[in-house]
Nucleic acid binder design. Structure first.
Lengths: 345, 345
DNA sequence: ATGAAAGCGCTAACAC
DNA sequence: GTGTTAGCGCTTTCAT
């Protein structure tokens, strides 16, 4: 017997993760292939053989080696998902919906966080592609040149979520951040606000919404729109601080605060209450994300809702459609958004 | 040329994910092994050879096939993480800290949600083990018999988080939920509360905290403790509803509401405000998790804080120590908890 | 410093 | 219905 990794005397126990299909076959008196078939196409194996194989599997606790399977079949049944952050509920809930569907179809999830950083994203893409996932979910439509090259070369389905473009790498599911900003500006103007300020996180999509908002609001109202920009992620504390800064900088009374996230908006609300400012009298607030707490704040928060559940589900279905070569799924899917008007604006 | 999966004429392009080390070797005028070495131990390859190999890699966009590598080396550099839910910030932030460290050491993450369900957990464990991860992170210390059997058989490091036990599968990092419940009861009694009610999610650990709280509070105060139990996860809306129910059932004035999560606690606070009830005068509230908003609610929420960051980091280090066969990490690590007293109780 | 050979545990193709 | 054979693309060992 030729040994290699195993030293002589390193007698292997037949149990759990070390058992192979060949071992099961030996125990059941069949060849290794028959074991493989018993697992992947039981109908092709006689009932008696099947039972013996199943017994052997039960006795040994055999768990098939999907790594070997993936290498042989060139299918990993692994999906890579790259999101900016799992601690942000908007991405987490999208992932939840996405992975639930993929899991139901036998796909496992490999996950990485990219922190809104294209370089980290590129590194993650490279690492993930080496694992040969069957498909990849990416957040956003802006990726480094290297990332695009790798993705194209990999030749696997890719779905970009949370944004839309006419030129996706493969397909995309999201909504127009520009349109969301414009809609918010029009909503604000229609609601009678003639002055506005912004609070924005260090996230390219948030900035795009803000820019669209500012441009449209200026068109409609003529005035200038000042803002506070963070280069980090949105937190309640930062939102409070933003209002403090804005007030210091002479934010006009009765103006509307356009926040890139409900976290910021809640912070603004909290700080306003702490200072005895009335909302929406002294200032109005509009958030983004429509998280659960938005409806329960006092005053209830006006926010832009995006259906994360639908986003995740449509993204999953787009990939599944590609696996099955179905052409019934369009390359660009706009899930839209909705301004939920409550008391704060 | 023997063809198999590929039909004749299915001429393969040399690009991206299809390139092999053998292809790179051909381009660089060396054998496949040398390419392998160039990647894993560049010091063992001459500088000139190395450069030619690197050129070839750049030109082709070669990404090594980690699936083949894992099969050959019996090391996947993949870590499985099983959490109840990614949309729950307490697990998400723990995961974030955990994966950051693992990533820094070259490990990718495979993720599944188990929804507090041992059966789903067992299915996930089986699916993950087939991928041959190098280690596994599990949430909680209660697992099905089948799960334990598989885990033991797999013979890989396993870290159980969010709870502690003297008999972990391998090692555990968490805190005592019983102790947390007892501490909350003692805190409540010391703060002068003589009546209490509970609001609890359908989560075994939350129930354990509640039971410990109730038992200790009864010891101290003698009275009965009624409660509302949900069998789902905690939401703000459910917290509001819980207070409605409790009030209907004659919840005594001036009592303390022990919530299994800050979400519930926020709901109770919101409903109390909506009804014009004063906190902590008419009712006091204590949450669990000390999420960011807790400190900013009005009144600020008293809560039990667990350092999720430390939890994730210690869990990661425990696995890394096991990989390196370091014995400097104990099998049971209690990260403790802290009651953060604010205005609500 | 480099290469040849063996083999990781499976799936795919083809025979019988 | 079952077996045989030939890989998948790497890492490991051993030789030079």
């Amino acid at each position: 017997m030729k040994s290699r990794a195993r030293k002589p005397g390193d007698g292997r126990r037949i149990s759990g993760g070390n058992v192979t299909m060949a071992d099961i076959g030996r125990l059941a008196g069949v060849s290794q292939v028959t074991v493989s078939r018993a697992l992947s196409a039981p109908a092709k194996v006689s009932p008696e053989t099947l039972e013996r194989i199943r017994d052997a599997i039960r006795v040994t606790g055999f768990v098939p080696n999907a790594v070997a399977g993936a290498l042989a079949s060139n299918k990993s049944r692994l999906i890579s998902a790259l999101v900016p952050s799992v601690t942000n509920i908007v991405y987490a809930s999208m992932l939840h919906a996405f992975s639930n569907i993929m899991l139901g179809h036998g796909y496992q999830l490999m996950l990485s966080e990219t922190g809104f950083d294209p370089e980290r994203e590129e590194a993650a893409i490279s690492a993930h592609l080496s694992r040969r996932p069957d498909a990849l979910l990416l957040t956003g439509i802006h990726h480094s040149a290297g990332a695009r090259r790798m993705l194209l070369a990999a030749g696997i389905p890719v779905v970009e979520v949370w944004d839309i473009t006419e030129t996706p790498i493969d397909c995309c599911v999201g909504f127009s951040h520009g349109a969301a900003g414009v809609a918010a500006a029009e909503f604000a103007h229609a609601a009678g606000y003639r002055q506005a300020v912004t609070v924005t996180a260090g996230d390219e999509r948030a900035i795009r919404r803000r820019n669209a908002f500012v441009e449209r609001f200026r068109q409609l109202s003529g005035g200038d729109v000042m803002g506070v920009d963070f280069d980090s992620t949105a937190t309640l504390g930062a939102g409070r601080q933003a209002l403090v800064d804005l007030l210091d900088r002479g934010m006009p009374r009765g103006c509307l605060v356009f926040c890139s996230s409900d976290q910021f908006a809640q912070g603004v609300l909290v700080e306003a209450r702490a200072r005895g400012l009335s909302v929406p009298g002294d200032l109005a607030v509009i958030g983004f994300g429509d998280q659960e707490f938005a409806a329960h704040l006092d005053p209830a928060l006006t926010s832009i809702r995006v259906d994360r559940d639908v986003l995740g589900r449509v993204a999953a279905n787009a990939l599944l459609a590609r696996f099955e070569r179905r052409a019934d799924v369009e390359a660009v899917h706009d899930v839209g958004f909705e301004i939920i008007r409550r008391a704060s604006a």
